[in-house]
Write a protein that binds this DNA or RNA. Structure first.
Lengths: 213, 213
DNA sequence: TCCATTGGAGAGTGGCACTATCTAAGTAAT
DNA sequence: ATTACTTAGATAGTGCCACTCTCCAATGGA
């Protein structure tokens, strides 16, 4: 398969594919001659994954590159690679170090992590992106004066735990480690909009149930 | 309070506040003289809400304007205003009309909505942004060949329903309708990163539990 | 009076995901 | 073997968008 066909089958313009190649989001094709390269099915899959990360996950190109690099770093164990890939995922402004809102949020997050018994994945005071993202989000709530008591957060945490179980069940339907790693990245990202939109639909429903049509 | 103080208390540069005023994300201050205006606490709160929508919710300025306009449209009922505000919220690429993946996704979404008994908020074939966002997300999963069977979606839907109950409980702690409307917008947006980061933390935990440290 | 500040408006900036153009080197059909 | 394409690769735009800068005339405080 050459560039034009890869483009046609994926629906991505050739110029964009060239851009992704340049940005190392896509491995180069197998060189046939000095000016021709051959692409395989794995390029097609990878290209679609890249598009998902960027368009569905609204991830900057640089971040997508890190995520993919972590996912295929041969020097890491399978679980570390999964962790590294998810690690590289997220977003949002960094919490300010000496912001009182952030400090309070941090303490609350530590409480939630402890109460959930989440000791494997991270230490308290861990600075994984997901942890920092959570601190930043709660700091925002605090700053705006919106409620975020620990019990309410624990409700969310418990539900997140159930989601994770369902997600990992899905990942385990894949047999080989590389597939699993790609699946965990893709599913983490692709199910986010699913979850958010379901939540909004459910809110609309619940709202009209409570406050009348 | 004048511009400089509003800027100082919110941490938002004066130039940016002027920009928001121009874009009608912030109502004009009360004109004192031909060249002076006075801002109140409600401007401060509104400004922080705008920042939340744009920075935390990563919402385009135009979308934020629509959301806020819907939230304060006096001609609508309280519930309609809430719905309209949440209605205007989300994003992501629109599902293509004659894409077979989108068609399959649409059918599946309708099944989920029916099985959840979500008939109040929307009709089948409804085109609310949340509905379209869900269809687009599932179409992406389909296109990439990732599993998204209805049972798995129902797990997510059920959890989303529980989240909505918890969220609306929080909204009901506010007494006056305008507060509630602002709360439902703010909480919908501000709890999204909370939920997503908790999910990622839970995944890391669950993953290391299953696949070893 | 004098000068910093204000609201307002228009133009400019920077980041970023593309997209267009060009070139030298193949390839395919005639 | 001539002609018309296509390709990889590099460089230079383009378009969008959230700001940010620069002016300006009119104040308002010292």
């Amino acid at each position: 398969m050459r560039l034009a066909e890869l483009s046609e089958r994926s629906g991505v313009p050739t110029a964009t594919i060239k851009y992704y190649l340049r940005e190392r989001l896509l491995p180069p094709g197998e060189r046939i001659t000095a000016t021709q390269a051959e692409y395989g099915e794995e390029h097609l899959r990878r290209l679609r994954l890249v598009r998902s990360l960027i368009q569905v996950g609204r991830m900057p190109v640089a971040t997508a590159r890190e995520v993919l690099a972590a996912a295929e770093d041969e020097s890491l164990s399978q679980n570390t690679r999964m962790g590294a890939a998810v690690w590289a995922l997220p977003h949002g402004p960094e919490p300010d170090e000496d912001d009182p809102h952030a400090a309070r949020a941090r303490a609350q997050v530590d409480t939630v992590v402890r109460r959930m018994g989440w000791s494997h994945g991270q230490e308290l005071g861990d600075t994984s992106p997901a942890y920092r993202m959570l601190v930043a989000a709660i700091a925002s709530l605090d700053r705006l004066g919106y409620p975020h008591d620990t019990e309410h957060l624990l409700v969310h945490a418990r539900l997140a735990g159930e989601l994770a179980v369902a997600d990992l069940d899905l990942v385990e339907t894949y047999d080989t480690p590389p597939e699993r790693i790609e699946a965990v990245v893709a599913l983490t990202v692709l199910y986010e909009p699913v979850l958010l939109s379901l939540r909004r639909l459910a809110q609309t429903e619940e709202s009209s149930r409570r406050f009348g049509k």
